[in-house]
Design a protein around this nucleic acid. Sequence first.
DNA 1: CGCTTTTGACCAGCGC
DNA 2: GCGCTGGTCAAAAGCG
Length: 160
Amino acid sequence: MEKHQVMLPTSSTSSTPFSSDFKVDYINSTVHVENEAIRTQRKAISAQNKRDKEFIIKQHRYVFQTKSPVDVLDDGYQWRKYGKKIVKNNKFPRSYYRCSHQDCNVKKQIQRHSRDEQIVVTTYEGTHTHPVDKSAESFDQILGNLLIGNLVCNVPPTLE
DNA sequence: CGCTTTTGACCAGCGC
DNA sequence: GCGCTGGTCAAAAGCG
């Protein structure tokens, strides 16, 4: 199957597709790890802790809008699908993926645009704790071919 | 045999 | 409290 590759930033690589200013923010931000303990203690989290947690999650959410015939862009990492959901106001299902690497809790959501089915909205959440699994094409090349809008940081995807 | 995908069920958050 | 919605779980099936 044809795949498109996208180079993504990791905590262990020096190159990122982002501007230098953004790169600094990215590396300095706190790694968010959501584990089972956090899930089970959700009810007990105070309002302040909840706000802090939401802030941390926002710091690690990156949204790409790409124009591609394929849903899953090959970013060099290995992903395992763990869910699929029909979401409101969108005729295409949203797919949920987790990084297959041990102890890496990076997640991504993939959904096609409701109005333009050529557009794929990919949302990354978290920071990879390991190097990229395999070499990927240069991000600039991918951007030239695929990216139709700006890289959106900390903003939820617009799907209407 | 081990890993991934599929898919219905379950759970939590939110608005009314 | 109830219903809706989004996100996750987990068992079964599929695949190399």
